[in-house]
Simulated assay, not measured.
Amino acid sequence: MKRVFLFMATNIAILAVISVVMRVFGFDHYLTENGLDYQALAVFSLLWGSVGSFISLAISKWMAKKSMGVQVIEHASNADEQWLLDTVRRQAQDAGIGMPEVGIFQSPSPNAFATGMKKNDALVAVSTGLLQTMDKGEVEAVLGHEVAHVANGDMVTMALIQGVLNAFVIFFSRIIGYAIAAASRDSRGGGYTMGSFIGTMIAQVVLGFLAAIIVNSFSRWREFHADQGGAKLAGSQNMINALKALQRSSRTEKLEGEFAAFGISGGKATLAKLFSTHPPLEDRIAALEKAQFSNNNVIS
């Protein structure tokens, strides 16, 4: 309940800040007596669509610690914590990034995620369930997967793609709404009717679904790349074994909010694969086994 409340409160606060800023600077005045001011609408759409994504990313580490209860390992208190720090430090060096913060969060589900706005100032967190159900080779692969997300700049890229697509959705849904208003007989001075308002909302929902398909398609694509990065940092077989361990788990759950896209697992597969942030585990395993087989053939 605390996690849901924090996510909702944070998103509401972000939207409120954006609304106030746009009202103060007049960026929301895109509807004039002569029709739409497309330049003003473009600025409005870009700000409304992208600023929220980057604010969320900028505070993502703070949100992870507060909402997910991530306990950052400042100084190792036992051998397992020291091993986690040493493993992530080595992988970060191999990947050419700064040492991320390393943390643990309480969850019976085996999972992990990475977040942060900068490659050299990220956070990698693992669940207690993951540490309890996987051996060290598998945990090392999961850590490698998350470090690869950071090294690939996936967090910033996802925020950028999401922001641009949000802007397109807002821009074109407003144009559709205005077209309905212009065609309406009871419209005066470019004002909106109830029908045009409903048309704008419907267009925003439809275009939003299309945008979500594009964003999640990219998300699934970069999961394969993060798996390859994990295999490079921790060994192909360890990465394959880690994914098979997730496959066997009966408690795999999807993370909440923006952390879902960067978890090692996206939860159990659903019918709506187009809207899934992660490919099915069997597809990820097959891709790694195929790459492993090709590499062995090259060597031999």
Score class of each variant (00 low, 15 high):
Arg251Met: 14
Gly96Thr: 09
Arg284Gln: 05
Ser50Cys: 02
Ile14Glu: 06
Ala167His: 14
Phe168Glu: 04
Ala179Leu: 05
Ile175Ser: 03
Pro279Cys: 13
Ser300Ala: 09
Val156Tyr: 09
Gly235Val: 12
Phe209His: 03
Leu41Gly: 11
Gly163Val: 03
Thr32Ile: 01
Ala64Val: 02
Leu41Thr: 08
Ala16Gly: 15
Thr277Val: 14
Leu57Tyr: 02
Ile12Asp: 11
Asp283Lys: 15
Ile55Trp: 06
Gln247Ser: 13
Arg222Ala: 02
Ser67Glu: 12
Ala261Gly: 11
Asp135Ile: 04
His278Cys: 08
Gly26His: 02
Lys118Pro: 05
Val102Cys: 08
Pro100Asp: 02
Gly129Met: 07
Thr128Leu: 03
Gly190Pro: 02
Ala226Ile: 02
Phe172Thr: 10
Val150Cys: 06
Trp221Thr: 12
Gly116Trp: 08
Glu253Val: 10
Gln39Ile: 14
Met117Glu: 00
Lys254Glu: 05
Tyr192Ser: 14
Gln228Asp: 11
Ala16Val: 06
Ala79His: 07
Arg89Gly: 06
Arg174Asn: 13
Gly69Met: 02
Arg185Val: 14
Ala159Leu: 11
Gln39Glu: 00
Asp186Lys: 09
Asn120Trp: 06
Asn295Ala: 15
Ile202Gly: 07
Leu143Val: 03
Gly189Asp: 15
Phe113Asn: 12
Ala42Pro: 00
Gly153Ser: 02
Gly191Met: 13
Gly235Gln: 13
Ser67Ile: 00
Asp186Met: 12
Met117Leu: 15
Ser217Ala: 08
Gly96Asp: 09
Arg3Cys: 00
Leu165Ala: 10
Phe275Glu: 03
Ala212Met: 11
Gly235Ala: 12
Leu281Ile: 15
Gly116Lys: 06
Lys290Ser: 15
Ala159Gln: 11
Ala114Val: 10
Lys254Tyr: 01
Leu271Tyr: 12
Val24Trp: 15
Ser184Asp: 15
Val43Leu: 15
Ala141Asn: 08
Thr10Ala: 01
Gln237Asn: 11
Thr252Gly: 06
Phe168His: 05
Leu130Gly: 09
Trp221Pro: 00
Val72Lys: 04
Ile161Asp: 00
Asn120Thr: 09
Asp37Trp: 01
Leu85Met: 13
Leu15Asp: 08
Ile214Trp: 10
Gly189Arg: 06
Arg174Ala: 14
Gln247Glu: 14
Ser184Arg: 00
Glu282Gly: 06
Ser249Leu: 09
Asp227Tyr: 04
Val21Phe: 10
Val164Thr: 07
Leu57Gln: 00
Phe27Ser: 04
Asn120Glu: 07
Met155Lys: 05
Gly229Cys: 07
Val206Leu: 15
Phe218Arg: 09
Pro108Gly: 06
Ala179His: 04
Ile170Met: 10
Phe25Arg: 14
Val72His: 04
Gly230Asn: 01
Arg23Asp: 03
His75Ile: 09
Ile198Phe: 05
Gly195Thr: 11
Gly191Phe: 09
Pro110His: 01
Gln106Met: 08
Gly235Pro: 14
Phe209Glu: 04
Ser236Glu: 07
Phe171Lys: 03
Ser249Tyr: 10
Arg222Pro: 01
Ala13Thr: 10
Ser219Val: 10
Gln93Trp: 00
Leu246Glu: 07
Thr277Ser: 14
Met1Val: 10
Phe259Lys: 09
Lys136Trp: 13
